[in-house]
Design a protein around this nucleic acid. Structure first.
Lengths: 208, 208
DNA sequence: GCTTGACAAACAGGGGGATATTGTCAATCC
DNA sequence: GGATTGACAATATCCCCCTGTTTGTCAAGC
């Protein structure tokens, strides 16, 4: 072991090649579809050897999970940014976060490649967003809970967790099956959050 | 055309064989898996000719949709029963309905056969519950909206629709990915509904 | 209104051989 | 040490051919 190097906060540390490899895999999946992603092509695109891909990732199933985790990180980072923008108005933060997530989902090539692959062309990726989304939900809820904890809320922790579960699941549902514009969906969710969190008056609508 | 016969309220009227055929298909799918469902076997099990199956259903893709619609009807009927039980307490009705739906989902053979088919063994049924759940959501929301309209709620129709969308999506999410017992999830959702719908005081918790 | 039998077209399955891919090693290079 | 390279067995994938099944549609018959 060396001198502990940079001390990354959390998430599987992994070598310095890990992230570029995953990014290349996402790019490749979005462009040519998941079946076209072979470890050899991936290594070539990432500019590393095939062995390095195995050292950093492990297996193709692990690659699928890593891709989803990587993409989830992007979504959670825009969530974090939204919360940063409203350090003392949780409802505004929620509106911003939800809207940002749904807009990001709209023009997310990987997501569209996975979901709209005519008929289940990604029988290894889709489950991670649908029938096996448990891990995803858990991670998302944990991050959001950490953010929400910084606000003063007149509710017990249990009740706050209920609201978080509700919002996260609903947002994921809208990511997969939007039924309105991101702005309007965010508005709806923020309104619900306001009422549930006990915000004094009805906040003004942002979008008709 | 005959004399209009029984005048079924809504839903594709269909011949008198339609429902038994769909029920047989569900039974067969739950028992042997979707791939084992052939029109011939289905006809035999339903006690009709293969031609009748085609006359009533149309195609195998239509059969998949009909099965999901049929199962959705069962879920919506327990929802209706729950609402009937609480004609003047919407929050209690929601609690009952959500709990009943989640409990029904728990021991629903078809659902478990579709979702837990190790790895996407039903590439024609699963999408109807996940990536193409739009129709399902629409139908469920319509039925719930019809029920909710019978209560006096201090909210505009738009806001009520928001709450319905939220609850329906969250329940579907929990049907696919439960994170707690039906009772506790129902309790959580009912509590949220109570706060959003502007119910005066905090109703007592039903389950710890 | 339902059944029966017949039908073309498309589809799933099996066998077999070539090819590609996965995942793991040890040797090598910088 | 970290990365690359080449080699390797096991497995998956693809293509072709063939066969049996299934789909979806007819018209005849009861």
């Amino acid at each position: 072991m060396t001198i502990m190097s940079g001390a990354v906060p959390a998430a599987a540390a992994g070598g310095q090649h890990r992230r570029p490899i995953i990014a290349a895999a996402i790019e490749l999946t979005a462009r040519s579809g998941w079946p076209a992603v072979t470890m050899a092509r991936l290594a070539e695109l990432a500019g590393v050897s095939r062995q390095t891909v195995y050292n950093e990732i492990g297996s193709k199933a692990a690659l699928a999970e890593a891709m989803v985790a990587h993409e989830l990180e992007r979504f959670l980072s825009v969530v974090g940014a939204a919360f940063d923008r409203h350090p003392d108005d949780l409802v505004e933060a929620i509106y911003d976060a939800v809207r940002a997530v749904l807009e990001l989902a709209d023009d997310n090539k990987l997501l569209r490649a996975i979901v709209s692959a005519t008929h289940g062309a990604a029988p290894e990726l889709l489950p991670l967003l649908t029938t096996e989304a448990g891990a995803l939900l858990t991670q998302a809820k944990a991050v959001v809970a950490g953010r929400v904890a910084r606000y003063r809320i007149p509710l017990t922790g249990d009740r706050v967790d209920v609201v978080i579960d509700l919002v996260v699941r609903t947002v994921l549902s809208h990511v997969m099956q939007p039924s309105d514009t991101p702005a309007r969906t965010a508005d709806a969710l923020a309104w619900v959050a306001a009422r549930v969190l006990g915000v004094p008056a009805n906040p003004p609508l942002r979008h008709t």
